[in-house]
Structure formats: structure tokens, C-alpha cells
Design a binder for these strands. Structure first.
Length: 207
DNA sequence: TGCCAGGCCCTCTTTAGGGCCTT
């Protein structure tokens, strides 16, 4: 049985911690061979207000955050929950920065490798009309577990997308169930290189 | 004052530009 992978999603007050944005909610699911085996989710309070358009998009209000536990407490629990598991996020460049920034404020290391479901889906579903998480979920007929733009629902959608891609690699391309290290290798290939690697296998199998 | 990300990826490219993706 492969080691667990932690699929994470943050809701935040903005696009980057480099400009003062902070996390407002974190959702994490632990997956093992495509199955969710554990979940963690919490709002968190940092004192940084949410811009109105983000509150309207997420449904997370400043009043909700004032009643939430402190970010330091939530992030310590999140770090314990993840442990040494390698991580996955939809547009990992975004979530990994908040993961590192929030843990750095606590003096905690954030050395887990991040695989990215956007990079992977661009390679595995090059003809998808969109690689936005919600639209890709609908395109593939995957379940929507809750309101989009809430951390746990988005983490669950990303986990389902990850499992669908692992399954496709296994079934269509004759590969073993890809572990996190193999996903990292696949996302580093250029899309055209990966297409050349995968298509002949698919063609042979479909004959 | 006014503006404010940044990495990926395609193409009418590579001495660049613009769309995508995340909040």
C-alpha cells in the first residue's frame, strides 16, 4: 500500500503572503491509493480582514473568523496532521507558499514536496476545456462534495481529481499506481514530452 | 500617486507577449 498523500487547500485574504495575505481556512485530506482515509479542516483567525469580493466568493466572513481559533493553533494542528506526508494542491505554487509562510511564523519547517494537480491535469487531460478545479471536476463527472471555494470541499475535489488521474495512468497507460515521487516526475516533463511518452502505450492498448 | 504575484505554457517564440490558475 503506498504511503499517504496530503491534499491541501487554503482560503486566504489575497493572492500572496509576500504582500501580507494570510490564510483564513485550511482543508486537508489524507489519501491512500485514491481513497480518503482522514480529514482536517478549520477556519483560523489572523486579524487580517477579508476583502469583500473574497468574502462573497468563499462565504467566509470577518465575523466568522473572529470566532475562529488562532492561526497558530490551527497551523500547529495541521502540521501534526500532515506529518511527513508528501503534499498535493491544485495550483501548488499558491498553497505551498501559504503553507510555508504560515508555518514559518511559528518557526516550523515546511519541507514537504508539493505535486500540482494543475500541472498534471494539463498533461493528462490536454483537451479539457478548462483546468479550473470546479470545471475540471464537472468535465470528468467527479462528485462535488460541498460549496466550492471552501477549503475542505476544494481539497476533496482535488483529491478526487488526483485519484482520477492516477487511475487513468494505471488503466489507460498500463502504469502501476503512481506514487507521489512518480507524480513529481510526470509534472516535470513538458506536456509534449509526456504526450509522446503516453500516446504510443494508449494506441497499442486500444488496438 | 498608483500600483501591487508568479510560475507555467503556448505561439504568429526564444532579443516576447499573453492567457491560465490559485484567493
Amino acid at each position: 500500500m503506498p504511503s499517504p498523500i496530503a491534499v491541501i487547500d487554503f482560503e486566504t485574504t489575497g493572492m500572496t503572503p509576500a504582500h501580507g495575505a494570510r490564510a483564513t481556512e485550511v482543508g486537508i485530506v489524507l489519501v491512500q491509493q485514491g481513497r480518503v482515509v482522514d480529514r482536517f479542516a478549520s477556519l483560523m483567525y489572523t486579524g487580517v480582514p477579508i476583502p469583500r469580493f473574497i468574502a462573497e466568493m468563499t462565504g467566509i466572513t470577518n465575523a466568522m473568523l473572529r470566532e475562529a481559533p488562532p492561526a497558530a493553533q490551527v497551523m500547529r494542528e495541521a502540521a501534526r496532521f500532515v506529518g511527513d506526508a508528501p503534499m498535493v494542491a491544485h495550483n501548488a505554487a499558491f498553497d505551498s507558499k501559504f503553507w510555508q509562510a504560515e508555518l514559518a511564523l511559528l518557526g516550523l519547517a515546511a519541507s514537504q514536496p508539493y505535486a500540482c494537480t494543475v500541472l498534471l491535469s494539463r498533461r493528462i487531460y490536454p483537451d479539457a476545456p478548462s483546468h479550473k478545479l470546479g470545471r475540471l471536476t464537472d468535465h470528468l463527472g467527479l462528485p462535488r462534495p460541498g460549496r466550492a471555494h471552501r477549503a475542505l470541499a476544494d481539497a476533496e475535489m482535488a483529491a478526487a481529481l488526483l485519484a482520477a488521474m492516477q487511475q487513468r495512468l494505471q488503466d489507460s497507460y498500463g502504469l502501476p499506481w503512481p506514487d507521489h515521487a512518480q507524480l513529481m516526475q510526470l509534472q516535470r516533463c513538458t506536456p509534449k514530452t509526456l504526450a509522446r511518452m503516453l500516446q504510443p502505450t494508449l494506441a497499442v492498448q486500444s488496438e
